[in-house]
Amino acid sequence: MTGASLPNRWKLPDLGLGVGLRTQHFRHITEHWPAMDWFEILSENFIDTEGRPLHFLDQIAEHYPIVMHGVCLSVGSTDPVDFGFLDKLAALARRVKAVWLGDHICWTGVAGLNGHDLYPVPYTEEGLRHMISRVRIIQDYLERPLVLENPSTYLTFASSSMPEEEFIARLAVEADCALLLDVNNVYVTCRNHDLDPLAYLDAIPYEHVVQVHLAGHTDNGTHCIDTHDGRVIDEVWQLYGRVHRKTGGRATLLEWDANVPKFPVLQQEVGKAARFRNGTKIVTSAAA
């Protein structure tokens, strides 16, 4: 099922198959050094702390490539850019030799407050200009491309004048930023907004995509919530296969944040991606 190889425009590597690094697995990882191509960390969990998590991260970063993924950069916020926070991100990136770092296409707070959630931006020309300007400022300051993820969204602003996928595509091209395509979020968003996930995927500029996310979600019937609490459903695997055919291979990561299972279950679940990735590394449950 391997498709034609389409490199990303930064020639960032296809890291293979990885999982989100979670505290429950620190000890297992540092005792067994299990087979895993790379780990993604939640940046904010390792900022403003010098406690146990950082102690484990330092060891793990010596053995595996690390990618930083945040939830509080608030790129879409109309508050001023927090350069102090960017300094902290940059320091952590240097410390763990992050292959890349990113966040979400969203805002998390305004007027000095923080909702600790991924709030949708209105898909308007004003919203787009604002995001482009902020991404450029942040990229210039960090001196590296920002890898931004499509979030799961649960509402549509009446003022939106373009579909989400067009907003994301234009943002990526005009701000010249990288994309983290979360195929579970594509599924969830399309379910919540009665959209066609295939049309969504067809609109993405794949030369900007450097990473793919997989995750489970909760289907409430009337809407889906991006809960990261279970296995990836078949429909999402099919979307992943489609992305793989378009790209020929991108660093792929499984997120599992609630009801977190033992590490071998994560290995097994993310390993399912290997069937779409002929010729790439296959994660096994055996210790390295």
């Binding site: 909702g115 649960y154 509402l155 549509t156 602003f157 009446a158 003022s159 009337t222 809407h223 919530i225």
Partner: peptide, 17 residues
């Protein structure tokens, strides 16, 4: 300001957040 979906009203969608 906020559009309803086929299944949820605008306020139900805000209530998720």
């Amino acid at each position: 300001v906020v559009l309803p979906s086929k299944a949820l009203s605008a306020v139900e969608r805000l209530d998720i957040y």
